[in-house]
Design a protein around this nucleic acid. Sequence first.
DNA 1: TAGATTGTTAATCGATTAACAATC
DNA 2: TAGATTGTTAATCGATTAACAATC
Lengths: 217, 217
Amino acid sequence: MPKRDNISMSVIRRLPRYYRFLSELKDNGVVRISSRELSDKMGFTASQIRQDLNCFGGFGQQGYGYIVEQLYNEIGNILGLSNRFNAILIGAGNLGRAVSTHMSFESRGFTLTAIFDSNESLIGKKIRDITIQNIDNLEAVCKDRTPDMAILCIPRDSVAALADRLYHLGIKNYWNFSHYDLAIRYPDVIVENVHLSDSLMTLCYRMSNKSEDIREI
Amino acid sequence: MPKRDNISMSVIRRLPRYYRFLSELKDNGVVRISSRELSDKMGFTASQIRQDLNCFGGFGQQGYGYIVEQLYNEIGNILGLSNRFNAILIGAGNLGRAVSTHMSFESRGFTLTAIFDSNESLIGKKIRDITIQNIDNLEAVCKDRTPDMAILCIPRDSVAALADRLYHLGIKNYWNFSHYDLAIRYPDVIVENVHLSDSLMTLCYRMSNKSEDIREI
DNA sequence: TAGATTGTTAATCGATTAACAATC
DNA sequence: TAGATTGTTAATCGATTAACAATC
């Protein structure tokens, strides 16, 4: 593992996309691919692909290209997908249920170990063999073992108070589906935001201004 | 409405965030704000805020700042949120149910008018007063009135075939929750992707490489 | 060897930040 | 008027693309 220093967010955010396309190629039995061919499939320039990959090391062979399976594995390693970060989910409403049911945590570097909600009617129900617990149990559960990451699927107004509790339990990594901006409140925290309504509004803008729309992937 | 030409995606993707923060300020009764104060709250530079807003017109007053409510309304207009684009949702599994239940379409420029699924056990059930229909009805329903946008909450493998049907019905705008890459298949289409697992993998990378993590909002 | 394609450096392009004149 | 803060131009910074030498 050479280099890997000061990798820009632009590069990092492209890694899962590489991973996805390589997975597909692998499944289709493709053995080798050149940056040029990958560029056609993915819509990045060949130059960018080579540049990106070379942030992490020379995975290709000059004159030949890249071995699909090897590159796939390398990117999986770079992403750290063989981790089993301990994740807990807060909020078992529609969104929380969708996320916990739908997402393959195990192949993305995480294990979902607990689900919390404050709604009495949900507590005790199971999602994927995990029993929804009362949020009051949070401190007790985290005492044993501090979770590495918390998934926030709760309404905007509940986040501030809850984030305080989580933060003081030592949880510093968040997958945030709420509209609350954690990163500004706690500067030493890693937050990945999924702002669904921002995405929807962006789509609305682009549809409303279709003529000037810039294609983007 | 002056300028507004060649607005870059970077600027457009910040608009919903401005909208969100201004909404909060408005709710808190804040009347005026300077780019400097907004910069502290939002984590953008004041310079960038002024630069961004000036893509669309001069909404501020020199020596005074911006009137919160007015700026909020302006950005809402720019985003086109008063549209009622006709949206249909394909796939009423966990994710589709979460999206359709959770999202306030009406305040984001859309109306959800129909929900389709192929799963017999879901057909006939209601979400928000909308009855889940058999996907076989798709063509019949779209005959009356072509939807403006389709929300794709179906498994990766079903997308290709379905996208063909939708595209040939004249639907050219998509909110895509699947991992399938529509934009490459149909170049004249507007797609907003929500790649949840990409986001999760990015978080995994950042957690795995915490020391070098670059803060990002 | 000749052909292909990488890894890497250099050139370009675009986005962000700084500076400041305009003006409320 | 003086002070504040915008709108806008210019400078900087970073990311993307092009080019090409290295090498399989």
